[in-house]
Design a protein around this nucleic acid. Structure first.
Length: 105
DNA sequence: ACATTGACCCGTT
DNA sequence: GAACGGGCCAATG
């Protein structure tokens, strides 16, 4: 299993209505301390794939926009709002409320 | 095989 | 709080 497949597997486990940070995903994927790999992996994911890439955000509770996805700038925001996640006036998510706490049991 | 490219996180000023 | 810098590794041409 490739490193990136591992990441994709974790991302697929994020429940609807919750979000996870890159750091979180990296730890769950046995890539502790290497959160960039998560971002790089998601960069390679197709926007139309079955992977809920939109539920992965940065540690500040903000959406990380990709320069390459400039056309669909708030595609990610729209998808999250459709799942009931709300943004504050600064465009940030309340992590205390929406951050995914992986059960793992 | 080398160089470039990338959606980040954390500790310290 | 905000700003800055270092570290990290895999895929791609």
């Amino acid at each position: 299993m490739s490193t990136y497949e591992n990441i994709y597997k974790i991302v697929r486990q994020i429940p609807i209505g919750k979000v996870a940070t890159y750091g979180q995903v990296s730890e769950l994927a046995n890539l502790s301390g290497k959160p960039r790999l998560v971002g790089y992996a998601l960069y390679r994911v197709d926007i139309a794939s079955d992977i809920p890439w939109h539920r992965v955000i940065n540690a500040k509770g903000e959406i990380s926009y990709s320069p390459l996805r400039q056309g669909g700038d708030y595609t990610q925001k729209v998808l999250l709002e459709q799942e009931g996640i709300e943004f504050n006036t600064e465009g940030k998510i309340n992590l205390r409320q929406y951050l995914w706490h992986p059960g793992n049991y």
